[in-house]
Amino acid sequence: MLTSLYLDRASAIHRLHPVVKLFGLFVVFWSVFWVDRPLALVPIAVLLILAAQVAGAWPNFYAFRWFLILMIPPTMIEWMAVYRQGPPLIDFWFIHLSGAALRYGFGKGLRLAELLAASILFLSTTTVEDFSQSLINLRIPYRVAFAMSLAFRLVPLFMDSALTVVQAQRLRGYDFDQGNVFERLRRYVPAMIPVFMGALRRVNNMAMALEARGFGAGVRPTNLSAYSMTRRDVVACALLIVIGTVYFLLYLYGYGAVTP
């Protein structure tokens, strides 16, 4: 059973304002965007490792270890295929592989892994409530944020029912893995219909319970966010802005590029 990645700790990162954490995620995206050189990506990797240590997020990184490692090679290959500069090491038919292409591809792979790592870090330290609350702080309408957090609550429930349905049909001799690709896709129909209909049976119950609790009162719902901007948050923001600026400068002065 899949569960949310949140790890209940009280680290400095956990206690940051969720909007600041969201900003941090953005800054990582922003920074790695401007550089291609693997070497230029190393400081971000170091920062992420430090943050993971502070947040105690290693269990999640351990769970994703293969994913993080294995996402690098295909990304390298994809990008090396379009990178045509530099003296080729191999030049055969449509393959032109230069040393720069290798570095370039590796940089791309590393950057993707870093983005995933930053996301894992964010999810390890931020609860769904805080996330949806920070969306509301960022002017996302209440009902959209509410729909998101309610859907979150229902996912494990639906997943459980999906797995049960698969078992129930197997017991009646149904084989889900038969035939060619299209046939196999089609064979999911007897599993998907019960899950779907089970959800539909709930629509009226749920809408009714919502209204009975005052949903739709037309008042602006109270914001319960327990966070206020503290000194720690201001410091973190300043730090993040510095990092973002440095990376943009790296790009401006050409230090971030892979040279052929």
Binding site: E129, S149, R153, N205, M206, L210, V219, T222, L224
Partner: peptide, 20 residues
């Protein structure tokens, strides 16, 4: 079908929030 929140505290708060 009548619990809408990701934690119990927020569940209790839900109706009160709606009332503003």
């Amino acid at each position: 079908a009548q619990l809408f929140s990701t934690n119990a505290g927020l569940e209790v708060a839900f109706g009160l929030q709606q009332a503003g």
